[in-house]
């Protein structure tokens, strides 16, 4: 199981940094989708099956589709290249360098101080996603409903023609 976790983490890191540092929007979006897929596999390995399904179908699928439609509806891809012409290539390599440096420092510090957060505990018996979600998290359910209404109102507000025009 540890091998699977390390492979997933590696994928997430590589494609995540690639997504953040890339200039083209479509490439960023696709890299983000790969990160979501890797995270989904990681969640499945850790035992969170329902969350893995959600992650892969919603984040890896839906958000990428929304994003790419936003890009195509606005031809946004051309904009990014136009304005990045002024940024020299030297500056663009900053981000991965900073991240690799920070990562190395954190790893060394953690190794030297023997940092550890404890070992995984055995699963609490009888705990099932359905039971926990529908029995104890009603406030979250209500919050999600309100969030969806908020999102719908927001989209209507931004795309409706003005009443006075």
């Amino acid at each position: 199981m540890n091998i699977a976790i390390y492979v997933c983490l590696g994928c997430m890191l590589v494609f995540g940094v690639f997504s953040a540092a890339s200039r083209k929007l479509i490439i960023s979006a696709v890299a983000l989708a790969v990160v979501s897929a890797a995270l989904g596999v990681l969640m499945y390995v850790l035992g969170a099956h329902t969350a893995a399904i959600f992650e892969v179908s919603v984040c890896s699928g839906l958000v990428t589709v929304i994003f790419i439609s936003a890009v195509s509806l606005s031809n946004g891809d051309k904009q990014i290249e136009a304005q990045d012409v002024a940024v020299p290539a030297r500056k663009r390599r900053f981000l991965p360098a900073i991240l690799i440096g920070a990562g190395a420092i954190l790893m060394i510090v953690a190794w030297l101080t023997g940092f550890s957060v404890g070992t995984p505990a055995a699963a609490v018996s009888g705990a099932n996603f359905n039971d926990v979600f529908w029995e104890t998290c009603q406030a979250d359910i209500f919050g999600q409903m309100v969030a969806l209404i908020a999102g719908a109102s927001a989209i209507v507000v931004f795309f409706k023609e003005s009443e006075n025009e």
Binding site: T50, F54, V63, V124, C137, G143, L148
Partner: peptide, 20 residues
């Protein structure tokens, strides 16, 4: 780590919905 995967899943699902 805490053996409470179901609660973590509930949190993750809620965060996903909000972020979408």
């Amino acid at each position: 780590l805490n053996g409470n995967i179901a609660l973590a899943e509930a949190f993750v699902v809620t965060v996903i919905v909000l972020e979408v």
